[in-house]
Design a binder for these strands. Sequence first.
DNA 1: TATAATACTGACTAACCGGTCATCTGTCAA
DNA 2: TTGACAGATGACCGGTTAGTCAGTATTATA
Lengths: 277, 277
Amino acid sequence: MKKQLIMEKAIELFAKQGFEATSVQQITEHCGISKGAFYLSFKSKDELIIEIIDHFMIQFTSEIDYIVRSAKDEENLLYKFYYAIFNSFQKHSDFGKILIKEQSRSFNEDFLVKMRYYDRLMDKTILSMVERLYGDHEVEEIKYDLVFCIKGFISMYSQLFLFYNVPLDLDLLSTSLVEKTELLARNSTVPFISKGLIKIFEEPPIEDLTKEQIISLMNQEMEEMEESVEKESLMLLKQQMHEPTFGRAIIKGLIENIRNHPQTKWISHLLSSFFNM
Amino acid sequence: MKKQLIMEKAIELFAKQGFEATSVQQITEHCGISKGAFYLSFKSKDELIIEIIDHFMIQFTSEIDYIVRSAKDEENLLYKFYYAIFNSFQKHSDFGKILIKEQSRSFNEDFLVKMRYYDRLMDKTILSMVERLYGDHEVEEIKYDLVFCIKGFISMYSQLFLFYNVPLDLDLLSTSLVEKTELLARNSTVPFISKGLIKIFEEPPIEDLTKEQIISLMNQEMEEMEESVEKESLMLLKQQMHEPTFGRAIIKGLIENIRNHPQTKWISHLLSSFFNM
DNA sequence: TATAATACTGACTAACCGGTCATCTGTCAA
DNA sequence: TTGACAGATGACCGGTTAGTCAGTATTATA
């Protein structure tokens, strides 16, 4: 598949030079293909970056979410969380660089929406982890601050090893951050981010994608799929969104059908929350 | 002065759209002047952004540095520090947005150098504050981590109110961060950023280190070591860099010898990539 | 081998960019 | 009224960009 090749080479170049500073010409030269061939795989340069973001962030967020949800041993949960995050960043360091460089870029509205979506998804996962870990403890007041601090740790230490090619002792880093997080969780008393405050920046944009948006994304995905159980599940789910006639069990099963495929995993995410699963 | 006007309007536009996405034409239109007039005040668009960065960062860094240096009452130093930082960000929120957006951008070498310079300046100030506040306490081991955490706090909470226009209680925010910082400073025991590690990114990008630079770093390290297998390995490796006579296996073994020691771990990393291991 | 379908090419377009410069304008001293 | 000149103008230039499309090469089919 040409798409794969283009994405790989594009990631390298974007990581080195940034998105805007990299021309389509450059990408195609690196691939050894013509400019025209690029536009057979992607409708535009913007579509390319969005597909790249999706490809990795879907994997990334679901991996972390899975770890948090499935962990039975709460003793090591925080450690596993940090370890998985930095491990991912290390494995896909070029993508990590893109993520940090183009984070708050505003060249493209769709891009911004995508980034915000995954950011929120991550917030939700971290919050649920915090609640699980320290729920019994009186963490209620400071849990949003804790989420922010955890994100701050991740962001700072990621930059450290992404941009300085530092030899990375994952175990030490995770242990160190676990200790810091625990200290804050068990001893902080002065919250800054109150429940009222969190609403302010949850309110406007957090609206999960609208039903129409999700359906359009599903259509988009279906066009690119060959006939399969996944495609059929997707089509049935689309009908259910218009008018739910099946029971919860069936819908859940259909969502499960598409969860394990990289191409549709993220849609399963959307649908889960749409159907309140 | 036209310069003033141009800078003000440019900051607005850069904050909204980013530097690269804003054309000189747009800036001049917002100022109500012609394109030619722009080039009477600035030699180029790049010069404009650099003057903007300088204008604010000189003010900002010296203000913070002054606070840290002049404070006699160490009790409130940390509070004053956070307060001043967020107060500045609030007053110059458009500039703050530019700072965050274009942080790790790579469009212009001069720009990158400038940013790195001010970042280092800030690091130095924070480090000296940390040493002053917790010098008596055994902060030695974790002081670099502390600097990183402080920067992480600042970065996360800045983004919060810069991009969400959240009403900001500076006093509460500062108090909250003081508590968090104190908790970490007085209770952390597991450092991640060792003295050896900090060296790597004080001597900026590693990939650019020449053979001579690496050798000089090795000499530097060897001076501080007592006689040991590690020191001997280091010396042999130095010879091999001048003229490789040993086989790959031997070299790899020597590198392995110094890998497991915190003081030389980072050098092993440099050598690994030098010898293509 | 002939034909149809598909994949691929790269010259081309239209738009926009940063930067220049011949030209113009308003002001003020002579 | 004249002339000189700093300040301002905007058409213009060379260069780069994303994206297109008529035509070519490759592969599958018959």
